[in-house]
Design a protein around this nucleic acid. Structure first.
Lengths: 194, 194
DNA sequence: GGGGCCATGTAACCCGTTACATGATTGA
DNA sequence: TCAATCATGTAACGGGTTACATGGCCCC
């Protein structure tokens, strides 16, 4: 499912401009499971328009730039529904943060602490942001995935806090071991292929 | 952090071939936070070799194809350490599965059930796989991130099971509401921009 | 006999990011 | 006055995926 399809999905929530759609990904309800930038959203909307899957209304505003408000057409909805029937591909995750933590024993402690605390506070911020949202009426899918996000952010944040001390302590031990084996390497540097 | 850097990281765990490195991403300890295919791993190893960051030994095997076992050089380790100092970019997540659940009320129930149960069983499988691993000795970073993965997989799986019934029930209500408003749309189809 | 694992590699393609261009308004 | 928000768009670049090519062994 590409950005184009997600734009159709975005418009099922109501008419919106490219800028507003971007915010759905940035900090709105899509933030937990997808990301997209202007460079993919605007061209997507353009293509959807030429395919008749969305219509557009130019809104003249004063005090701020004009905007183009897009609306899902019946055909657009049909196409979106068809896209949802396709079996989903596996989740794609790419976390440099976790990678850093994985290789904790190859980092100096200050950097590691910064990564750890930065990551943790990001998770706390996210979970608080979700909690503080007023739900009004939202669809069950939206409510459910929001709960899913909450479980994820809070679960990870709690885990990190609970294991913080032990983690840094054990990493320090690993680092000492690494240093020893590197010293040993220096003494036998010739059979190293280097 | 690109695949090239992750290949260096992979080799801190021990010498390995491209094929073996791929398995780290596919089902090994990297699986929770990164993914990479042969098409990126082999070229990466080639470039690392020409840069002197890894060395290679051709291993002739019988009964199976020969393989090239790569080894991290001192310079490779230095470069890897330097890469870890760079502040990590934000996690990238892209989940078609969650997207499907978000738009639950635009799917027919059979498809939705298939997505739901498929996703759930994927998570159960993953968490069981992690649990069943014998740890022997592994670095704290690795242990910690494994725990992180476990919290994630089990947290989400539990959430899904606990909320399953309510979810499907509420979605059914949403779907009925949608159908009603679409019928209403048909009656006023002319002011639809379509 | 067929499917799956072992094993390496390349080339075309694609989707998306980054960076740039432009510019008014509002609030600190 | 400086930064942020609102708002749309394009072009170059890039990293990675998909698909293809090749081929033997092992187990059912």
């Amino acid at each position: 499912m590409d950005v184009k399809t997600l734009c159709l999905g975005a418009l099922t929530l109501g008419d919106a401009s490219g800028y507003e759609i971007r915010k759905l990904f940035e900090e709105g309800p899509f933030a937990h499971f997808y990301d997209a930038s202007y460079g993919s959203i605007y061209p997507s909307l353009g293509r959807l328009l030429s395919e008749g899957l969305v219509s557009v209304t130019e809104m003249v505003q004063d005090g701020r730039p004009d905007k183009k408000v897009y609306h899902l057409t019946d055909e657009g909805l049909t196409v979106f529904r068809a896209a949802l029937v396709e079996p989903p591909v596996r989740d794609k995750v790419r976390s440099e943060n976790v990678a850093r933590l994985f290789f904790a024993d190859y980092m100096d402690e200050d950097t590691l602490r910064a990564v750890f605390e930065g990551y943790l506070s990001e998770f706390r911020t996210m979970s608080e942001k979700i909690r503080s949202l007023d739900d009004g009426y939202i669809s069950e899918g939206r409510r459910f995935t929001r709960g899913l996000g909450l479980v994820f952010y809070e679960g990870v944040a709690d885990y990190m806090e609970e294991n913080r001390d032990r983690f840094f302590e054990s990493v320090r031990r690993d680092v000492m071991t690494n240093n020893k084996s590197e010293e040993a390497n220096l003494k036998t540097a010739d059979d190293d292929g280097n």
